[in-house]
Write a protein that binds this DNA or RNA. Structure first.
Lengths: 211, 211
DNA sequence: CCATGAAATGAGAGTAGCTGTCAAAAGAGG
DNA sequence: CCTCTTTTGACAGCTACTCTCATTTCATGG
């Protein structure tokens, strides 16, 4: 227990990570960068783990140690915890739809902060490579669990109850489709705008607007 | 062109399929039966294509000719077209939520008609085997497309529009979660009842009911 | 009934993702 | 500098899946 904050001989606010940790992070990024590069050059299927290992200057074994599957190399997904935290820090009396909208906006801002190229490549792969989409959907399940938890906290319901679970998954399904839509249309439209339209549909169903 | 209704020397209304077609159907079922049996005995992962081929008395090559992936052997999914047809045949002036509810009820009846053992094995595998769940979710996408089409026909919207697509996928996500919920709880509760609760949530959101 | 053409099958080799083991190398701590 | 632990690399192995090609099986027309 008690991660860090213990024996930080370096008084600076720097990470204070050991050489080992730093190397691990570097290896992780080397693998990801190599993967993005190779996929960009030759496509997803044509890119083998061996090639990735070679370009990242590690052994194939190491690649598997860092990422359980090839799809996981491109699907980072480190946002969920951030989103959860953001959600929890919203005022308790704020209407739920408002909280949701606010947090989703924040999340897309975070997404835009990182290299937009990467974020687009990722969504493009979601559309084009079935395996990646599958993996993505799978990760949706765990995201759904967290959402259930958050909703349960806010509404005092059972996080394992059917209603909460159904609601969470329908939400995620809708949001997922928004990403696909965005990617399928060549990332032309403004994602935030799409998001707003999506949330409208999820709140009010298919209303009477034109299209 | 012109399938059958040509030279049906057998005046009976029987299928009038050639020996070849009949054999194909038999092979298909042999493979599925073998798969269900083996998985029931030893589990999904422990069951290899070779074993399936052996029990079905065909070659491994043939298994792959009939089913592109191992997961596809257990995921039949021949209901989509039926559901679509049922949906189309509803009176045009029926409110959309009512149509949806009616059709979903019909679908579960169809599902119960076939061997309930098989249907339960399938949902159980969805919960337990990630690969199967992934494949299932993937098939959801195509189901979603059909739903979009149906919704578009009913409401005069663009089937490719964001709103319709989001609505369809959120629906499918919710329904999917219902199946998972049902399987996770040992198929104890009445599926139709769960379905009704699900549709309530999808229509009205998380209302004010207790739980 | 047989010959011809087409379709289905089987056998085999090959690819790649992924798992496991084990010994060597590199960092951490005394 | 020595020891312990973690990380890595090399290797073997399994299995899903693909591709090719020869063989068998059904359909058809004479």
């Amino acid at each position: 227990m008690t991660t860090m904050t213990e024996r930080t001989t370096t008084p600076a606010d720097r990470p204070a990570l050991g050489l080992r940790e730093r190397k691990k992070i570097k290896t992780r990024e080397a693998i990801r960068t190599a993967t993005y590069g190779l996929i960009g050059e030759q496509g997803y299927d044509a890119t083998t783990i061996e090639q990735i290992a070679e370009r990242a200057e590690v052994s194939p074994s190491t690649v598997f140690r860092y990422f359980p599957t090839k799809e996981d190399i491109v699907l980072t997904d480190e946002y969920d915890p951030l989103i959860m935290e953001e959600l929890r820090s919203r005022p308790a009396d704020e209407p739920w739809p408002d909280s949701l909208r606010y947090v989703m906006h924040r999340a897309t801002q975070l997404g835009a902060d990182e290299d937009p190229e990467v974020s687009r490549l990722r969504t493009r792969l979601m559309v084009e490579v079935p395996a990646v989409r599958s993996r993505m959907m799978q990760s949706m399940s765990s995201t759904g669990r967290m959402l259930c938890q958050a909703i349960a906290e806010r509404t005092g319901r059972d996080p394992e109850g059917l209603e909460v679970r159904v609601y969470a998954m329908s939400l995620i399904g809708g949001l997922m489709e928004t990403s696909l839509y965005w990617a399928e249309n060549g990332h032309r439209e403004d994602f935030q705008a799409l998001l707003d339209r999506t949330l409208d549909v999820l709140q009010h169903g298919l209303g009477t607007e034109k299209n």
